[in-house]
Every structure is written in structure tokens, then in C-alpha cells.
Design a protein around this nucleic acid. Structure first.
Lengths: 225, 225
DNA sequence: TAGCATGGTAACCACAAGGTAACAGTATAG
DNA sequence: CTATACTGTTACCTTGTGGTTACCATGCTA
């Protein structure tokens, strides 16, 4: 999981980053609004972030404007944090499209929980996933196609669960790379091989693959039609 | 929108119900955990609620157990509220599957916002745009015309979402150029090609294009008339 | 009527993205 | 210690995308 932290207090930022790292969350850091905008421009979007933590009281401008920008076509959910207890601030941010807020001073464990929630990590409520003749039991870690039980390698299982969580929405290549090879330098071929192998294992005679490619957008778990 | 409020303080409950009603939110009310369980049993599920507001400090039992129950196969998202500021309580509830919390005493407008967000999270997942036989699912990135599924290239998808967001208002050429080719030098032909291709992909026999041109002003997504 | 601007369509093609198979190094199990 | 499976790597092939050009249609103006 990768998030963007926009926060001017260097000490607080350092603490936050340390804590989130310990929780397995990667953090990109912007000390100012200007820097955040640079990042947005560089990557051409905020798409690559699972969530954005946005401090409302930044020295160089109005954080609300960045919020608007992040929502203009991008999906990254925004959690804003504010020292002010003024209700109006909170309501304004919600109105602008923020999905959650936390009041300073906050407890780091709570921040971590909220970030994870925002990123949708907890939506693993569904114990089983079914699609046509494909049957995935998350808790038992069993995959079946029709009446044949399929054994997947660790990587393939990870990818399948990721796809199933988001189905039928597509999952971008970048998202998959981050999810399966969190640290290591990744090479495009590893991704291609993994996909081919998962497709092969899930395949069944005469039936089209359940893994659809949307060129340039990623892959999705859905029935062809 | 219909929600369930589980709260033992009658005065607070009445205020809350009044306020939420004024916001256009219908409220079912349970004063005790027992009553909440009855409701769950009657309707056979909490499914019919868009959200559940759950007070943690109820006289007749542990609210966490209801939380578990409400998650056992049902989809209603839970917002819990607590007078305690103990962090552990919050973390426990999050761990049990709550999606949000609010600390007493809370401001009613904030509660209303959070409830709407919570209820929206579920429906927001299925944000769709419809126009005649055209059907666009933003989160799943699926486009259908009638019962035919359409696959769009990244550029075309970007343009379609832009048009759909503003529909039925027209989008100027300059706006489109900036949105799709943010940095690069743009040539007018690229724009023309893109439009033609999107029109072609969205076309259906005998039906006029859903993309109308307003000369000099741009293009708009609307039915011809 | 010619001339020009705006907009639409079709065809071409370089090239990047995606798919497959085979091989090799390394871990893992029996 | 051997056999097996997993995963990274390379090579090669296929396909769709998107920039480009050429040409046509319409409408406005001189």
C-alpha cells in the first residue's frame, strides 16, 4: 500500500512515516502544497496512491484547492487532518470531497486504521468469490473451476485475491506490481509471466479466460461478453 | 435513505432523529441492543439499511456483538459512537468491522455528513451514468450500449468520463485537449481522430450518435432531439 | 461564386503493450 | 540428495493504439 502524506510539520511527519512504515504502509512525503502539486504533475496523476493524507493548515496555500485537484478525475481518497476543532472547516472539507478526517493531536494507531479503511483494505468481508464456474474460497485458500480443484503458487494466489477484491473493476499494472513485489525492483516481464501462468492455471477447455485485459488500464476478473 | 439508530439516551436520540429527518434521512430507532436484535430478526437482515449508527455504551450488553452480527453476511456499514475517548475502544470497534466512529458529544451536522458518506461508500462503488441505451459504470470501467459490452482505449475512456461528468453541458475543445494531452504539444487532428473513434465505438445501428457537436463551443453527451 | 474555417471519416503504419513458450537458477519437499 | 515446483529471464510473436495524412462536407464571408 502506498500513500501520500502532505504535512508541513517535519517532526510529526517523521513520526507518522515511521509508524506507517512499521504497519507495512509505504509513504511518499510532501512538505508543502507546492511539492504535492509537483508530485501530481510528475506522475500525471494521483492514481498511484491508495490514499492521501492532507494537512489543512499548510503554509503555502489553501489545502482545499489540492483536494479539488486530486478529485478531478483521480481516484485517490483523501483523509484530511486539522488542528482546528471548528466544525465549519470539517464540513467544508467534506463538501469538497474528502472522505474522512482526523483531529490533531491524533493517535497514530487510529490514523493507521483510518488509512487502511480508506484504502479499502478491509473490504475483505467476502469469504468466497464466484464467477461463472470459478470458485474462490478466501479463508480456506481453495480455488476450483467447475469440479476441478486448482493449486496456485503464492504469487498467483496473491494476484487472484487482489483481482477478486476489485472485481469486476480492473486493477492497474502499477497496483499489481506494488502488491506482489512491494520492495524489489520490478521488471515488466515478471508481471507478464505471472499473468500468463495464472491464466493457464485457471483455464478450462473451450471456456474463455476469466481474466480480461483492458489495454492500458490493467486486467479485470470478469466474464467475457 | 434509511438508517438504523441504536441509542439508549432518549433525548439525544430524538434530537438526532429530528435532525436527520430534516436532512432527508429516514431513521428507524432501537433504544436497546435487544430491540436492535429483534429488528434484525424480523427483517431477517440489516440489508435494508443504508447505514447503522451504533452507540457503544448500551445498558443491556456489548455493542460489539451486534456489530459482529450485522457484519455476518449483511452489508450495512456501521458508524459507532462512544463517550469514551479511550483509544482501545475505537481500535476494537474498527477491528470488529466498524467503518467509522464519532466521539460524544458530537455536532449533528457532522454526524449527518458521516452517515451520508458511509451510505455513499456502498453506492458510490456502483456509480453509473446512463443516457438512452448507453450505460457507463465508472468504478468497474465498463461501457455498454444496449446489451453489447464496449471496450474503449485509455484515451477514449478518459474522454468519455470527461463528457459524462459534464453532461449534458458541452465540453470545449481546449478543455479536452488539456485533459487528455496535459503536457505534449497537441495537433488538431489528434483531437478529431479521437472523437471519430469514440463515436464509432459507441455507435449503434439506426441510432444517432450520443455525442453532439456544438460548433465553436465543443461537444456534449446528450440525446439528439 | 470562390475562398476559407471548422468538423468528420477513412486508411496507413510505427511502435508500444500484451501474450506465450522455453530455459535456468533457486528454493522446497520427500 | 534428488526431484519437483516456483520464479526470474530471454526471445519472439501478435495486436491495438494513436499520431499522421489525405480527402470530403458544411457553413460563413467577401
Amino acid at each position: 500500500m502506498l500513500i501520500l502524506l502532505v504535512e508541513d510539520d517535519a517532526v510529526l511527519a517523521a513520526q507518522t512515516i515511521d509508524f506507517l512504515n512499521a504497519e507495512g504502509i509505504e509513504v511518499d512525503y510532501a512538505a508543502t502544497l507546492g511539492r504535492a502539486r509537483e508530485i501530481a504533475a510528475q506522475t500525471a496523476s494521483f492514481d498511484k496512491y491508495d490514499a492521501i493524507i492532507l494537512d489543512m493548515s499548510l503554509p503555502d496555500g489553501n489545502a482545499l484547492s489540492l483536494l479539488q485537484q486530486s478529485l478531478a478525475g483521480f481516484d485517490a481518497p483523501v483523509l484530511f487532518c486539522t488542528a482546528a476543532t471548528y466544525l465549519d472547516d470539517k464540513l467544508a472539507a467534506f463538501a469538497a470531497g474528502a472522505l474522512d478526517y482526523i483531529t490533531k493531536p491524533f493517535a497514530l494507531p487510529e490514523l493507521a486504521v483510518r488509512v487502511k479503511l480508506l484504502a479499502g483494505k478491509v473490504s475483505k468481508c467476502n469469504q468466497v468469490f464466484e464467477l461463472g464456474s470459478l470458485h474462490v474460497d478466501f479463508s480456506a485458500k481453495i480455488v476450483r473451476r467447475g469440479n476441478r480443484t486448482i493449486v496456485l503458487s503464492p504469487q498467483q494466489w496473491l494476484l487472484l485475491t487482489l483481482l477478486a477484491e476489485q472485481a469486476p473493476a480492473p486493477v492497474s499494472k502499477a497496483q499489481i506490481l506494488r502488491h506482489i513485489w512491494p520492495d524489489s525492483e520490478v521488471n515488466n516481464n515478471m508481471y507478464k509471466s505471472l499473468l500468463t501462468r495464472l491464466r493457464y492455471n485457471l483455464s478450462r477447455d473451450n471456456e474463455p479466460s476469466v481474466i480480461q485485459t483492458l489495454k492500458g488500464q490493467g486486467v479485470a476478473l470478469r466474464e467475457s461478453s
